[in-house]
């Protein structure tokens, strides 16, 4: 029983970080219909920024916001200089999603080699800012530590603020309108191109948070070839697809489902089956609901 609760707690923490990454993927998809593989590289780059700031100032609370801003700037930069011209060239047909995917894969490769060149074998260190010793309950320590609480808190806070932005502000309305009907929004006076860049920037900030939390929750150090970041990228993307790639709530549900099931498999079945389990979960969900847990049924055909 104790073990099961611990497994669930570990799963929820990991899952909430995947959710953040999934949200980052979803935001980009919603604003430009691009599957953004560069998101993983951006999260990695901003985590390095975070680590550098932490080294300079010694405070996690300064490092996190600066890393988020850095992530937003990187992401907006990529949208403005690479994706926007690319999409302009190929025309907003949307049918051809292979090319943008390949472009973001290329960007991921470039970001990784640049980081590799700058950092080489050195690693950036991001130790947990709070104790990661579990609370003690009736003599036994459970998998819930102040650090895990902090992670859950940050994720929750980000999700609530994103929801508020999307539902209650003019910016959120423009973001939703620009992704739903770009032409009509343009006629209604929304600067669609600018709004898209904003969407990418928010996505970059969220991705940076996911990267930093993933590092502090895991080994505490980032390196360009970090395994944790491949996990984050793959599972974040899978979570987004499970949730139906259009919806923020879907991304959260997808991330949590994935995190919990994978933690259970890791605990009770075997570590090497985790990846194939992620595939099976994905295909099971998509066979039942081809557009994800929360996806428009029928949806756009073109």
């Amino acid at each position: 029983m104790f073990e099961l609760i611990n497994t669930l707690l570990i799963g929820i923490t990991a899952g909430s970080i995947y959710s953040l990454m999934a949200i980052s993927v979803v935001l980009v998809w919603r604003s430009t219909r691009v599957v953004n593989f560069a998101a993983g590289g951006l999260a990695l780059a901003s985590s390095f920024v975070g680590a550098a700031i932490l080294e300079k100032t010694g405070s996690f609370w300064i490092a996190l916001p600066i890393a988020m801003v850095a992530g937003a700037v990187f992401s907006a930069f990529i949208e403005y200089f690479f994706l926007r011209p690319l999409l302009k060239r190929s025309g907003d047909k949307g049918a051809e999603i292979f090319l943008p995917i390949i472009a973001t894969l290329g960007l991921l490769g470039i970001i990784k080699t640049i980081l590799n060149y700058i950092y080489g074998d050195r690693v950036g260190s991001l130790p947990p800012p709070m104790s990661d010793k579990g609370f003690v309950f009736s003599g036994e320590s459970i998998a819930l530590s102040p650090m895990r609480l902090l992670i859950l808190g940050i994720v929750l806070l980000l999700m609530i603020s994103l929801t508020l932005v999307f539902q209650r502000t003019n910016l959120g309305l423009s973001l939703r309108a620009a992704s739903f009907a770009p032409e009509i929004s343009r006629l209604a006076g929304i600067r669609v191109d600018f709004i898209r860049t904003v969407g990418w920037a928010i996505s970059g900030g969220v991705g940076a948070t996911a990267g930093i939390l993933q590092t502090t929750n895991g080994s505490g150090s980032v390196s360009p070839e970090s395994f944790e970041f491949s996990l984050l990228l793959v599972f974040g993307f899978v979570a987004a697809v499970i949730g139906g790639i259009e919806s923020l709530i879907g991304a959260v549900l997808g991330g949590l489902t994935l995190g919990i099931i994978l933690a259970i498999i890791l605990m009770y079945v075997g570590g090497s089956l985790v990846f194939i389990a992620a595939f099976l979960i994905l295909i099971l969900v998509l066979l039942l609901r081809p557009h994800g847990i929360i996806g428009a049924k029928g949806g756009r055909r073109a």
Partner: peptide
Amino acid sequence: YLAGTTLA
């Protein structure tokens, strides 16, 4: 969705 499935 297809990209995600094949990636996984």
